[in-house]
Nucleic acid binder design. Sequence first.
DNA 1: GTTCTTGCAAAATATTTGCAAGACG
DNA 2: CGTCTTGCAAATATTTTGCAAGAAC
Lengths: 143, 143
Amino acid sequence: MNDQNIIDLIKRHDIKPTANRIIVAKALAGQHCPMSMAELEDRIGSIDKSGIFRTLTLFKEQQLVHTLEDGDGVRYELCHSHDHSIDNDMHVHFHCEKCGQTICLEHIPIPEISLPEDFQVQSANFVLKGTCPKCRNHRHQKP
Amino acid sequence: MNDQNIIDLIKRHDIKPTANRIIVAKALAGQHCPMSMAELEDRIGSIDKSGIFRTLTLFKEQQLVHTLEDGDGVRYELCHSHDHSIDNDMHVHFHCEKCGQTICLEHIPIPEISLPEDFQVQSANFVLKGTCPKCRNHRHQKP
DNA sequence: GTTCTTGCAAAATATTTGCAAGACG
DNA sequence: CGTCTTGCAAATATTTTGCAAGAAC
């Protein structure tokens, strides 16, 4: 995604596209997996964690990102849906317990679960855990 | 579950049933939902958090409990399966964003997902989020 | 008496806020 | 100017460890 696309995306969510926000959104778009605060901090380098934190909080309020809890805490992922009134792009994730990476299984949607009707479901978090292909093969690595 | 049952359960997992361990296991068995460290601390009162933490760590190693991440961090739940070589009693949970409670939907098993065979899946975490029936009705409560 | 367990304190992490300076309009 | 954004420092909260005293065997 180029800068202009990122800016448009941010604007579509009623957020003013400041320099930092563009950097954070770009970092998220650049990875193909959800990122933790720490990963974003590392990857970006130039922005203080409080800034990243506030940016992510804002993004989340405006439904530009959603959060996901794997075993290592909270991760942030750009919402893929263009209808930003509902976060309907949830898919299954795989968290590798060896390398700590969380992989999107974008082609696997979260299965529908029917609950008694007095439950109001707003989002879902489905994470499979185990060993990813890479770690399974190269047994001794720790990326 | 009475004390003797708890003790037996602990022993079946090759853990020495000390006083603290019995208390922690009982607290977990007494609730019908997974508990966080903080909740256990509150509920138990008599044991220092480091003790609870170490007990839970041990329980987890011995597969007496498993962990679950909802939006509020890690929660611990007794494994229901009697075959403790594998944690096969995973079910869906519902996390209420109003009252913060996490409810077991014990009758709803986590759906099977078939991944490419080089993924080794060891466990799964499936949490639905939204508003629980109680909070939906009594709009203004915060239990 | 040797090993295991526990409580306390404190270290290590992670998350969140206050505030003043700067950017933007 | 007045408002919004940012970086730094610091407050909070959470998780984890070191260690010495006590319990178990």
